[in-house]
Design a protein around this nucleic acid. Structure first.
Ligand SMILES: [Mn+2]
Ligand SMILES: [Mn+2]
Ligand SMILES: [Mn+2]
Ligand SMILES: [Mn+2]
Lengths: 223, 223
DNA sequence: AAAGAGTTTTAAGCGTGTCTAAAACGCTTG
DNA sequence: CAAGCGTTTTAGACACGCTTAAAACTCTTT
């Protein structure tokens, strides 16, 4: 009926589309993300296209139809709400909630999701800072800047940390850079692209890998 | 990997075994419970037997191996703990939690289950009164009596209500007979097997359908 | 002991979701 | 523009889990 793998494919297509809004989503990128072969992705594309959930042309990548996007947003909503629940109610470390939510997101009745949302007092984001779509698929899209691109001397708030970069969450936590933390870029090295930041009274030098995985929110205050 | 339907089959075999500890579990009973054809059950039996989770002889019914029982107890544990969670934390009516738990029970990582258990302060039973196996598969087996078989004049506590009898939970709730409620049988009709009970200052006459679906616990007090 | 009824298994088929290996495609480069 | 390379699709296969229809079995009843 609902289809188990379909939901993961749709949500991954959605996320890939968000990360790269200009290009169509390629077979290979979906296969990589899902951990399956390109042949498997192609087969799934045929089924999803047959059911009018994606647009698919041979060798031309895929995109979500409105119906497919609705379903994808539902999965993403469940995923991020469950992450919030696992972190806030069950106190599970934020490094683990993504994997757990990936398992649970397909088995949650709407009523359970809605009650969780109420219990959590309608959170705007998952523990990593990604927005949670509301019941109707709407989501807030705040103005965020990559830490990589932030000018020197402005105090900002950490808004989002890429949950899929291996080891990053643990590293970011050790540095005290969870969503909500305040920081300021005090220097940037134009050669190796390292950024020097001040946060919680300490100084850290972050490589590109890190600075391009953290989004910040301007606060309007000078450092 | 884990197998989705397998878990439901194992848990249903376990429950059928509990309900009727003498006979082996028949193909038809499992098929009925699962809502599939007998042919489907036979096919699943072959796979489960191949994987040493059940003993199966043609035309001879099935029984769980120790390994199969372990898995079954894990599913039952998750099922009943989730029911508790849904009822106590999310305040979902107890008529609905069985169906929801049936969906969720296959997608809960051990750590999530264990944390839920701690949050709930290690409950002994699900909201309907069925015991929750602990992490090692142990479960308390209290001395319960069917209301059908209870002698007149003894005050007892409702311990368990069969969650699979259609409409019963709603009916029992209206009568104020949730697990924990006190009642006393004031009369029994030997012809139609109705029992008359007193509870919460009111008198009700219960048919066999009801009285054979409610278990009670002796309190040692006379009414 | 044979017949009949009910249960169970077998046989054949279908959709999902995965794989490997081979063929087709498309883009870049000589 | 043709060669080559990386990507994508096709072809063929397999396990799971379900179905219907037919065959096989078991148990009861005459
Ligand atoms: Mn998932
Ligand atoms: Mn997240
Ligand atoms: Mn289930
Ligand atoms: Mn229950």
């Amino acid at each position: 009926m609902s289809g188990l793998a379909r939901e993961d494919y749709l949500a991954d297509i959605y996320r890939l589309q968000c990360e790269n809004p200009h290009d169509p989503v390629s077979t290979g990128s979906v296969a990589d993300r899902r951990g399956v072969t390109a042949a498997s992705a192609t087969a799934m594309f045929k089924r999803l296209a047959r059911d009018h959930l994606i647009l698919y042309r041979n060798y031309g990548g895929v995109s979500l139809t409105p119906e497919g996007e609705d379903l994808a947003l539902g999965v993403v909503r469940r995923h991020r709400l469950v992450e919030r629940f696992l972190a806030d109610v069950l106190h599970i470390p934020w490094q683990q909630v993504d994997a757990y939510a990936d398992q649970m997101e397909h088995a949650l009745p709407d009523e359970v999701v809605d009650r969780m949302e109420a219990l959590l007092e309608n959170p705007y984001t998952c523990p990593h800072g990604y927005p949670i779509p509301d019941k109707h698929g709407h989501l807030s899209q705040p103005d965020l800047v990559l830490l990589r691109d932030l000018p020197v001397g402005e105090q900002v708030r950490v808004a989002r940390v890429n949950e899929r970069v291996p080891g990053l969450l643990r590293y970011v936590e050790d540095l005290g850079l969870m969503p909500g933390s305040l920081l300021e870029v005090s220097a940037r090295n134009p050669v190796d692209l390292n950024v020097t930041i001040e946060t919680g009274g300490r100084t850290h030098i972050l490589g590109l890998r890190v600075s391009e995985s953290i989004w910040v929110e301007r606060t309007g205050s000078r450092g």
